[in-house]
Design a protein around this nucleic acid. Structure first.
Length: 454
RNA sequence: GAGAGAGUAGCACAAUGGCAGUGCACUAGACUGUGGAUCUAGCUGUUGCGGGUUCGACUCCCGUCUCUCUCCCCA
């Protein structure tokens, strides 16, 4: 009787080759984020359920991984009459990195006035995973708290764009919209306020399902066909308009709605401010962008690539979230890169090149050499700065070479009785077959030369 | 949460009610201080699990678990 040894669906084991790519990518992201002045933060994998509930909308609440009460507390809870799912859990795995940031901010008195933090950690969602989707996945967030200045928007967009540029992904766009603007559009279409949420979810799909698909989607959600048609007309961007021309078009259509003035002005300002940042050339006004999470209040963004349907990351302004933890309202804006999707695109395009993980050298030994001598030789090579693995047994030397090949080690250092007696080491380039016997110190130098050349 | 399909060796797959197999991988050997190619030999299974039908079940039926795909939602 054997038990299932594959990890739970939607989770993965990361083998050494996987980690080489992941760490490389993480390194680029950290470096770029730090170049924009962001500082690192880490928070616990699980939070009090009360911290998480009610921040993401109903759908989000359902997708929270909950942790049951422990021991006696669980037994007592189970005995309560009319016990429900909600009574059995008091902790949940974090669902994103933004809510934990808001909690930390509310809990910590002496953070800088403008707290610019980055955070690369896994999050969990109790979803059924599809292609490129997981129940445990890494998010790479940057956020700026404490300012309503659109400089913050421009900076988070710029940092994200710089990551994509560094990775050689230049065919991305950053779609830009505004939560308040969406409200006005829905109002202008003549939809009742209570259909706002359902309409937002529908229009977010326009680029995926097309106009006819959207009409069906409206019908399925009980949205009045005439209002739906009006909304479609409002959000659909004509071909060939510049970003400011698209804003002019929207301003014209929303002239009768005073509430539209501010969001339109903010988007216009943001375009102007970002013109001087890395994000400038990539910004694209898109009135169909909605984003699922409930806490956004102002500008919202999403990175997309032609390579992949769906987004590579997203973010926006959330001026109300921190206030849910703390009396005073604290404005904030953030952006998150979808690490797993980015990895997928990088792999599909072969953008990783050679990322090496393993040792440089395999130390091989003949049976007439004592293990202590092999370890001594290995230690000398390591002190010279090489990554060295010692073959633990003494089969035929050819077997040892074959093992080196199998773990992609390029060089062998060979220690036999002859070398040991003379204080020498034979080194072999397994790619070219070149082999020489040198005094140990020189062998180390030559190996370094080889590994740097390759 | 809804619908469809699939589970056989470490991996990829055969076996359409009659001895559970092939390839790759793995191990050993083909001049005992030199690998990759080739050849030879060998190892690998409670056919996801439980029950039923049958003289006989990988195969048919029921249940269950897991995985994949499509919805839903999302990064």
């Amino acid at each position: 009787m054997s038990i299932n040894t594959s990890p739970p669906s939607g989770t993965r084991d990361f083998l050494p080759d996987d980690l080489a790519r992941r760490r490389h990518l993480e390194g680029v992201i950290r470096r770029v984020y730090e170049s924009f002045g962001f500082v690192p933060l880490e928070t616990p994998a699980f939070e009090n359920l009360s911290t998480l509930l009610g921040k993401y909308g109903d759908e989000g609440d359902q997708l929270l991984f909950r942790l049951l009460h422990r021991r006696d507390k669980l037994a007592r809870a189970l005995q309560e009459p009319g016990v429900g799912e909600k009574d059995l859990a008091d902790l949940g795995l974090r669902y994103d990195l933004t809510v934990p940031l808001a909690r930390v901010y509310a809990n910590t008195k002496d953070l800088p006035r403008f707290f610019k933090r980055y955070q690369l950690q896994p999050v969990w969602r109790a979803d059924r995973p599809g292609k490129g989707r997981y129940r445990e996945f890494l998010q790479c967030d940057i956020d700026i708290t404490g300012t309503t200045s659109l400089v913050a928007e421009a900076e988070v967009c710029g940092a994200v764009v710089r990551v994509f540029e560094e990775l050689g992904l230049r065919d991305v766009t950053v779609s830009l919209n505004h939560r308040q603007l969406l409200k006005c559009l829905i109002q202008a279409a003549g939809l009742p306020a209570e259909q706002e949420g359902t309409a937002l979810v529908a229009i977010d799909k326009l680029d995926k399902i097309g106009e006819d698909g959207l009409r069906k989607e409206f019908a399925a959600r009980g949205i009045d066909p005439a209002a739906g048609e009006k909304l479609l007309h409002l959000i659909k961007r004509p071909e060939g308009l510049t970003e400011t021309a698209e804003l002019d078009r929207l301003a014209g259509l929303l002239a009768a709605i005073p509430a539209a003035t501010t969001p339109l002005a903010e988007l216009r300002d943001l375009l102007a401010i970002a013109a001087g940042s890395a994000a400038g050339p990539y910004l694209r006004i898109d009135a169909t962008l909605a984003r699922g999470l409930g806490y956004y209040t102002g500008p919202i963004f999403e990175v997309r690539s032609a390579a992949l349907s769906g987004s590579l990351g997203g973010g926006g302004r959330y001026d109300g979230l921190i206030g849910m933890f703390k009396g005073a309202q604290v404005p904030a804006v953030g952006f998150s890169i979808g690490f797993e999707r980015l990895l997928l695109v990088m792999e599909e395009r072969g953008l990783f090149g050679k990322v090496a993980v393993g040792p440089d050298v395999l130390l091989c030994r003949f049976p007439d050499v004592q293990p202590a001598d092999a370890l001594r030789a290995a230690e000398a090579l390591r002190r010279a700065g090489l990554k060295v693995e010692v073959f633990p047994e003494t089969p035929k030397i050819g077997k040892q070479f074959a093992y080196a090949e199998s773990i992609k080690v390029r060089f062998a250092a060979i220690l036999g009785a002859t070398e040991a007696q003379e204080g020498k080491l034979s080194i072999k380039h397994l790619g070219t077959g070149e082999q020489l016997t040198l005094p140990a110190a020189e062998a180390a130098i030559r190996l370094k030369e080889w590994s740097q050349a390759a």
